[in-house]
């Protein structure tokens, strides 16, 4: 194990930036983004084939040393999510699964109740379960008891790039959870990612902000550096804020 690596399941991650395969202009941008960002885990989704367009194997664009994190998007219930997870594992994606169960199609809010049920089912089956949730401390505790490997609270609704709108609620999770806290969804800028890491988040998951940047590889690198800086600042224990000015130089006059 390397210094300051994040453990999830039986894997150690030295990069605390997780990425996604959605919304890229071309899948060909994915390997360059992974290389530039150093991201060691990436999400993908499972869907019925579209018989009108030729299928493309997205897994071909992901180097073998990057951990696959299939998501259960499209699931509306715990049972549907469990089915997707089992198919993904059977298809050779490994044991990691991001539970994403959305029943609210306007705001794309995760359904915490179904997500807890899916976590209970899949943790029992030996999956490394990473549930995507609204930040809710009692729920996070239930997820931990159910065997979740981490909790992944949203910063803002999916794809909005609005940053840490749920900051104070995420802070409660960071302060109280025994499993890692990964901020997922809503992170739009490297500064948002740095802020999440400064707060003590264990990692961030960024898809839209990287994939839809004009240069996804460069943006991936920018996020990687921000995540590293934020993590380093957290470990260095930041100085306290103060309501009044605190002179950095002696307060005596220059020559008096």
């Amino acid at each position: 194990m390397q210094e300051d690596a994040l453990q999830l399941g039986d894997k150690y991650f030295t990069s605390r930036l997780f990425t996604g395969t959605g919304k890229f202009g071309s899948h060909k941008q994915i390997p360059a983004m992974l290389d530039a960002s150093g991201s060691q885990m990436i999400t993908m989704a499972l869907r019925r084939i579209d018989s009108h367009t030729p299928t493309e194997n997205i897994l071909e664009y992901i180097p073998r040393n990057v951990v696959l994190l299939p998501n259960t998007s499209g699931a509306r219930t715990a049972e549907e999510a469990a089915r997707i997870a089992r198919i993904a594992r059977e298809a050779g994606c490994g044991d990691f699964i991001k539970i994403e169960i959305i029943t609210d199609m306007k705001y794309l809010m995760p359904d915490n109740f179904e997500t807890l049920r899916a976590t209970e089912i899949l943790a029992r089956e030996g999956f490394v379960v990473l549930p995507y949730v609204l930040p809710d401390l009692p729920l996070a505790r239930r997820l931990e008891s159910a065997g979740a490997a981490a909790v992944m609270p949203l910063g803002a609704p999916i794809g909005t790039n609005r940053g840490l709108e749920t900051k104070s609620l995420i802070a409660l999770l960071i302060e109280n959870c025994t499993v890692p806290v990964v901020v997922d969804a809503g992170i739009g800028r490297p500064s948002h990612a740095a802020a999440a890491m400064e707060m003590g988040a264990d990692a961030v998951l960024v898809n839209t902000a990287i994939a839809t940047a004009q240069d996804p590889a460069a943006m991936g690198r920018a996020f990687a550096l921000a995540v590293q800086a934020g993590r380093m600042a957290y470990l260095a224990k930041m100085a306290e804020e103060s309501a009044v000015a605190q002179a950095s130089s002696p307060l005596t006059g220059f020559l008096h």
């Binding site: 996604g20 993908m44 794809g159 898809n207």
Partner: peptide, 28 residues
């Protein structure tokens, strides 16, 4: 039930079978 590729030639189809043809796509 998932049918692995090596089993496709030996898998006989029956009337009323329900097949799901799936693939991985981009997703966050």
């Amino acid at each position: 039930a998932i049918i692995k590729q090596e089993q496709w030639p030996a898998t006989t189809l029956q009337d009323g079978d329900q097949l799901e043809l799936l693939n991985f796509v981009g997703g966050g």
